[in-house]
Design a protein around this nucleic acid. Sequence first.
DNA 1: TGTGTATATGATTATGTGTTCATATATATC
DNA 2: GATATATATGAACACATAATCATATACACA
Lengths: 102, 102
Amino acid sequence: MDEPNKTDLDEETLFLVSQTFKALSDPTRIRILNLLFEREYSVNQIAEQLHLRQSTVSHQLRFLKNLRLVKFRREGTTIYYSHDDEHVLNVLHETIQHALHQ
Amino acid sequence: MDEPNKTDLDEETLFLVSQTFKALSDPTRIRILNLLFEREYSVNQIAEQLHLRQSTVSHQLRFLKNLRLVKFRREGTTIYYSHDDEHVLNVLHETIQHALHQ
DNA sequence: TGTGTATATGATTATGTGTTCATATATATC
DNA sequence: GATATATATGAACACATAATCATATACACA
């Protein structure tokens, strides 16, 4: 009962897993998430730090927000983004460390 | 000395990490790798089991082979594929389990 | 209400990706 | 060598994706 359908996966699981990894498959999104390991950042701070356009950052944050990989809080006109998924971000962190030390 | 450059990643690491996750971001590749958790399979066996064209499977296996996520052995004209990367495949397995039990 | 600043969004464009068909290559057997 | 079977490859196509520009929205404050 723990692992239904050993030889193939149902469509919902497949979609969820592929979407999760797709989020982590783009260099820009990886850089953003890696930056957020440290602390929360505003959209403009991310753009400055990583030398990206504001709209690029905003588009990617929307992507990550939709997948609930980041959350945000508002302070005046500034919006601060931070992490929001233990499992996925552990996976990313481990894989980055694995790559750094390979 | 363990984590150089806290706020941004070097290009090589970024490429390796993004490629790794790209491999896991396609439903067909996930299905193939998930199948190979069980045991080794030939190209045609994979195609039959997952209802995919032989050429589709072959193309995707080449992709996975280039990233050293699968290895193969020949037996006559048949080529059997199996897993070849502990870390990445653990990551995949964990994430599938996480999705299945969410 | 008007101005300034931060962020979000829509359209466009260039590039990347996955599947398919047709065919090539490789091995085994007659 | 000819044939059969298993796998690999190349080209073409449809579709997805990321970055960019221009502009819209949201909020703060005079």
